Simulated scan of single mutants.
Amino acid sequence: MKFSPLFALSALIALTPVAFAQSTTDLTVTGTITPAACTPSLSGGGSFEFGRISAQDLKQDAQTMFKSSLRQMSVVCDAPTRFALRAVDGRAGTDISPNEESFGVGLNGTEKIGRYLLRTNNYTADGNSSTTLLESWNGGSAWSLYGSTYAHIPNTNFPWLVGVSVDGGMEPSAIGMLTADFQIYMHIAPAKDLTLTDAVPIDGASTLEVVYL
């Protein structure tokens, strides 16, 4: 009779006396099935081109700021949905002053070129401009007022989220379509900290995320 390895192992276990108590561990499987999907988008295809920046226009001992033109950010859902916003830094580790709301623009050799912020303003929810900006520092468990009329979309290095409520609510509302003005605030490192003998490409990239609540 030919024994398969599995059968032989089973026979061995069956014939071995039980000498030890069972050791166990628990596991859980969790998640959420959302009734609707939301799609974020940016006008202009999400591309922000600052063109050629002269090295002479950079401050020697401080960061130099540049602003992009205004674009429109929109989040369209299949049905009214509670969600928040954050973004993933595609150039993680290149930010000259890492924090919860800035993103890197790449490296010049080993030199960090700068950083940028995702600034949003003038939110409208389903045609209602009476909106309140909220923030959560624990991944959405608790919410508080953002504290300004504009918001920076946070990065995923921190459990920080930005949400929008309608008519003064203290938790993000269920929204079918959210729109806002969107602008890049880019900061280039002090010129003294960069090697500027050759052209230095600015190479920032990030991904806007909808977080379902």
Results as ranks from 00 to 15, higher is better:
Pro80Arg: 05
Gly147Ile: 11
Gly106Phe: 00
Thr64Ala: 01
Arg115Cys: 06
Gly45Gln: 05
Pro154Thr: 02
Asp26Phe: 07
His152Ser: 06
Asp193Ser: 14
Ala19Met: 00
Ala19His: 04
Leu145Trp: 00
Leu107Val: 01
Ser102Gly: 00
Ile184Phe: 05
Gly147Ala: 07
Thr25Gly: 11
Ala174Ser: 13
Lys192Asn: 15
Phe48His: 06
Ala14Thr: 04
Pro40Tyr: 15
Gln60Phe: 11
Ala199Trp: 02
Ala199Glu: 15
Arg52Asn: 15
Gln56Thr: 11
Gly204Asn: 06
Ala205His: 12
Leu134Phe: 00
Pro17Met: 01
Val75Ser: 01
Ile113Trp: 01
Ala62Cys: 02
Asn122Ile: 06
Met170Val: 09
Leu133Lys: 03
Asn128Asp: 12
Ser97Tyr: 10
Gly106His: 04
Val76Met: 02
Leu133Phe: 02
Gly46Cys: 13
Gly114Thr: 04
Pro201Asn: 03
Pro40Phe: 12
Thr28Asn: 12
Ser130Val: 07
Arg119Cys: 08
Asn122Ser: 13
Leu27Arg: 11
Thr16Gln: 09
Glu135Leu: 06
Asn108Gly: 09
Glu209Asp: 08
Gln183Tyr: 10
Ile175Met: 12
Thr32Ile: 11
Ala180Asn: 04
Gly93Ser: 04
Ser10Asp: 05
Leu15Gly: 10
Thr34Ile: 13
